[in-house]
Design a protein around this nucleic acid. Structure first.
Lengths: 353, 353
DNA sequence: TTAGGATATGAAATCGCTTGCTCAAAAAAC
DNA sequence: GTTTTTTGAGCAAGCGATTTCATATCCTAA
């Protein structure tokens, strides 16, 4: 009826062109079984000549491999999809890496029905060879159900350590440690921590890094310097800090969004950044260079996370990765102007713990 | 070898269960040919009972339809992919709409080879039934080549009017008109226009809207109030405006990025926003609420553009859209604080041209 | 010289679904 | 009551690959 390709060139055509059987051509293409160098060459010449491209559908049907992977994200119930650019960067990496090996990512947002049934449409339909599940809103139940069915799986920006599923995550602990250490190196002794919510896994880990840095610098950890406010992403939390008896001279925000809200709260109090109070964020999102003043923050290598996740997934699909691996991505402190100090990264002390 | 589904239920199984031939089951599922209501019911019961899901690969092979579409973006040569969140929003809409009809989007970034050969891997491999090409970096050559091969096609945020290809684009003219009219309604008489480059189609259209608004308000169009600076996305352009004999009292930036650069230039000159100079952007990107002051800008309905594009594409694929259509998306002025005026949209005069 | 083992190739089944053709039975027309 | 349509369902041939098994050829070793 409606065919995309003008006049489809098939395996058979190549076989005919070379004067050989389709089986051999197939073997040559897939580099398996024995095919003499001579015929291999002639085949690849014919392929070029006729501009042949294997039909993915046919190949998929015969070999049970689709050469597609699902890139799956979830959105918080009720809310619209935030962190669009975060996911965008990840899938960019996924696509880039996948292309090298002939894999294509199918973009999918989990819907209510899939959440309930703990299964995914694209999996049921055999559309994909494996999945990349991105973001921390992915249900554990879903993940377990997929794992049980032996679907190749990689988590990005999420992990369930007990379940031993391959994942690639940001080294939140070190990232936070480095950020706070930086603040300390600028002379700050009272440093606040604000977050949207401490229950979120990433934010919790960042809090641990914060504690570690304080401890190592011999500073006391004060519980009331740590505040969260869910509804306004750290605005109220910051306000509380600023209005306390002994307000901090610096704030470490669990992410850039919280940092921005913190800045808003600080400005509201007519305090200056960084003169009166310094601030560091986390993520190095699109917004960071454009805040006023530009935000010093911890860079997360989003695109690279996507690439690595894809590479791992391909390994799993092809049984090359016998063991699940947790991949910790290093971070990088990006120094802008929200802490005043222009101290270069190289000059400040390295991780010691 | 490695199969995703545990024990694949096939059409045949359904047929056996009902005691009927596979052909009939297929017809029932696809709602074509004649099948009695009775057997239809029994079939759908069996489907539910055995949890059957058609195998996309097999279906694709037989019917030449993949039920996938390519979501294709390009990145400017050399540069990394900007506007991630823009594309993210679009594909979100594409996915949402596609899901209703069983279509999945395959995410793809055009690479150098594809650009050169004016063809796409996913098309050659018969992976997709059609394409959504997003962004204005898509080569015209590529588009024409695809069109010639009768690949169903929809452009998003881009159009080649002469080629009569279905597309969905922002109504840049009206959007700009509305923004500038708003500035005029606040009393501004000298309004500058800054852009990264005027050659860009969208920006050119916005310039036309700017001119229209001036004209309609009886204001003269002055060429030297329009400036572009490519390397710094409007920074130098703004600087030039501010240093001119008669600097403007307001600036309309061709997009949010330019607006941010303009703000930077304005701040550098120690001018206040909005007291000394007002500014309006275009896009309502992620950054807009977080600039200082928050940016008044023209909202573009990105996700909806994706939805509409997908709906159009599905129509084309199924021959339901006989004629190509250019879909103009209305915009909405989002009033924040960068113009000072808190004039509500409802109070200011409507489009009259 | 010949059996035995590599090595290269082919034939044919298969993957799961669609679809054109055929055909029987039921309904409608004559 | 026969002929013609209409309707519902089955047969079987693809779709374009992969893959198992068999086979032909060529070496090498006995």
């Amino acid at each position: 009826m409606k065919s995309l390709a003008q006049k489809t060139v098939t395996l058979k055509d190549i076989a005919k062109e070379v004067g050989i059987s389709p089986s051999t051509v197939s073997r040559a293409i897939n580099n398996e079984g024995r095919v003499s160098e001579t015929t291999k060459r002639r085949i690849s010449e014919a392929i070029k000549k006729l501009d042949y491209h294997p039909n993915i559908m046919a190949r998929g049907l015969a070999s049970k491999k689709t050469k597609s992977v699902g890139f799956v994200i979830s959105k918080r119930r009720g809310r619209s999809l935030d962190r669009t650019s975060f996911y965008g960067k990840i899938i960019e990496g996924v696509e880039k890496e996948g292309r090298k090996y002939g894999y294509n990512p199918i973009f999918s947002v989990i819907n209510e029905e899939e959440r309930k049934s703990a299964s995914l449409q694209i999996v049921k339909e055999n559309r994909v060879d494996g999945l990349i599940l991105a973001g921390c809103d992915i249900d554990k139940k879903l993940v377990l159900s997929l794992k049980e069915r032996k679907i190749p799986l990689v988590l990005v920006d999420n992990h369930f350590d007990k379940e031993k599923i391959s994942c690639v995550v940001t080294d939140n602990l070190n990232g936070a440690y480095e950020a706070v250490t930086y603040l300390i190196s600028l002379g700050h002794k009272r440093i606040g921590f604000v977050a949207e919510m401490l229950s979120d896994l990433s934010f919790y880990e960042r809090l641990q890094g914060y504690k570690l840095a304080l401890k190592e610098a011999g500073l006391n950890y004060e519980e009331n310097l740590v505040q969260e406010s869910r509804d306004d992403i750290g605005y109220t939390a910051t306000k509380k800090l600023l209005e306390s008896q002994l307000p901090p001279s610096a704030i470490f925000a669990a992410n850039d969004s919280a940092a921005i809200q913190a800045m808003r709260a600080i400005r509201k109090k007519r305090l200056r950044i960084p003169q009166d109070i310094a601030i560091v964020g986390f993520d190095n999102g699109e917004v960071a260079p454009y805040t006023n003043p530009p935000l010093t923050t911890v860079r997360v290598f989003t695109k690279e996370m996507g690439q690595i996740a894809m590479r791992m997934l391909i390994g799993i699909i092809n049984n090359k990765n016998p063991l699940p691996v947790k991949n910790l991505m290093f971070t990088e402190l990006v120094i802008r102007e929200s802490c005043g100090g222009k101290l270069k990264r190289e000059n400040f002390r390295p991780l010691t713990h």
